[in-house]
Design a protein around this nucleic acid. Structure first.
Length: 403
DNA sequence: AGTCCACAGGAAGGGCAGGCGA
DNA sequence: TCGCCTGCCCTTCCTGTGGACT
């Protein structure tokens, strides 16, 4: 092995470690206390307390933007509840399901299959009629006297994909159960979500509603201080680092997840450079790195057709500044995409489908597509790349590897 | 006020792969 | 092996629409 590499490894091992417990800077980590969510914890606890007497708590809906502590509070309160129940000899089972988890709970069937699994029943990945899976799940739940608290995180993702029938069925489940009782806690970051539901589902699921406000910069600082103390070795966090990470995250609608990511990545960058402490410049670099990594990862995992649509948009945006300065509309993208497909021997999709793919890319934040009417020029989307110049070139080289 | 464009976007359904029980 | 069921991706067909133009 070459000598420089040996040196690198030795100095890496000799360096004082920056992190004590790096996991403390992730959302999944549960700190003992949750700052600035005392009221929300108490409210939720109060709402769920009837379960300790064996009665069914109201169904609950929790709203709040990303990183406002919804999932954290829900998991904290439900696990404390489960502990209390154990102490008091009451049977409470908490099931947490995240609907954004690919291939776990993003369709009605998969959600039911995951539920069945939680209760120790195996259901094949696919193949069974849905009503049979419902039957398996209901039987499993009703196998003993218990209160089941079903926490469905990112519930809007599930409903968007599969419709609200599943929620209707879940909220009506109590009529069919003899021994067990089921309470549903729905968590979403889509504030308009409940309005889009069937009125019957809305009234039964939204028996209690809580809205979690975003954190402000000062609150984010408290959260970061608490986590940084657990995560970093003493004296490794420079002055102003926490304040800066908190301020940047507060600009993005008070997202605690973002704040934690910034701090963690800043620490990783500093450690990789072999520095003794994190300083404010590392937070800036972390901001860039997080954005870049997220976008590139999204693009990388897109299906080929979606990548081809993006490639068409990238090429059109590149030619936008010179003489033609044409609008990039759905039709223009579709033409370009068709030519690209012909070049690469890819079977082109219909305009209808491409229109949906454009919508998806917009949702991911890779492009910006606004529906706009040009009068007789028709109604279409105005499409532009939503990437910084540096990122655009990285995206280009990523796409050129694919095509 | 009416027309008309270039789509948006909803609804229905086809075809496929994965998986079941008979 | 066959018939049946599912999710997923896609096409086909359709109605709806904002605003420039007549």
């Amino acid at each position: 092995m070459p000598q420089p590499l040996q040196q690198l490894f030795s100095s890496y091992m000799a360096a004082k470690p920056m992190f004590k417990v790096q996991a403390a800077l992730t959302m999944a980590f549960e700190p003992g206390t949750i700052p600035h969510r005392e009221k929300q914890i108490e409210d939720l606890g109060r709402a769920l307390a009837p379960a300790l007497k064996g009665s069914k708590p109201s169904n609950i809906f929790i709203y709040g933007k990303t990183g406002t502590g919804k999932s954290l509070v829900a998991s904290h309160v439900t696990s404390e509840l489960a502990k209390a129940a154990e102490r008091m000899g009451q049977k409470i089972k908490v099931v947490y399901i995240n609907c954004k988890m690919k291939r776990a709970a993003d369709t009605e069937y998969r959600l039911l299959a995951s539920l069945a699994k939680e209760f120790g029943r195996e259901v094949p990945f696919t193949g069974l009629p849905t009503d049979q899976v419902y039957k398996v799940v209901f039987e499993a739940i009703d196998s003993q006297e218990q209160v089941v608290i079903l926490v469905i995180d990112e519930i809007d993702a599930l409903v968007r994909r599969t419709g609200d029938e599943i929620l209707y069925n879940l909220t009506r489940v109590n009529g069919e159960l003899k021994k067990a009782k089921v309470t549903v806690i729905g968590i979403t970051n889509d504030l308009g979500f409940i309005d889009s539901l069937d009125p019957r589902v809305r009234s039964s699921l939204g028996e209690e509603e809580f809205v979690y406000p975003p954190y402000n910069a000062l609150q984010l600082q408290d959260i970061l201080k608490q986590r940084a103390e657990m995560a970093f070795a003493p004296g490794t966090v420079g002055t102003g680092v926490i304040e800066k990470a908190a301020a940047l995250a507060a600009q993005e609608h008070g997202d605690a997840r973002r704040a934690l990511d910034l701090l963690r990545v800043a620490g990783e960058l500093a450690e990789r450079k072999g520095e003794l402490a994190v300083d404010q410049s590392h937070v800036d670099s972390a901001q860039d790195k997080i954005d870049t990594d997220r976008v590139l990862e999204i693009i990388r995992i897109q299906p080929k057709q979606s990548q081809a649509v993006l490639q068409a948009i990238v090429e059109l945006s590149a030619g936008k500044d010179d003489e033609q300065n044409h609008r990039v509309s759905t039709g223009v993208v579709w033409d370009k995409y068709n030519r690209l497909c012909a070049d690469k021997g890819l079977k082109p999709l219909t305009q209808r489908r491409v229109s949906d793919l454009i919508g998806e890319l917009d949702m991911f934040g890779v492009i910006q597509a606004r529906v706009i009417s040009h009068g007789r020029g028709g109604r279409t989307r105005d499409i532009e790349l939503a990437l910084s110049t540096g990122l655009t070139s990285k995206v280009k080289s990523l796409l050129s590897q694919v095509f």
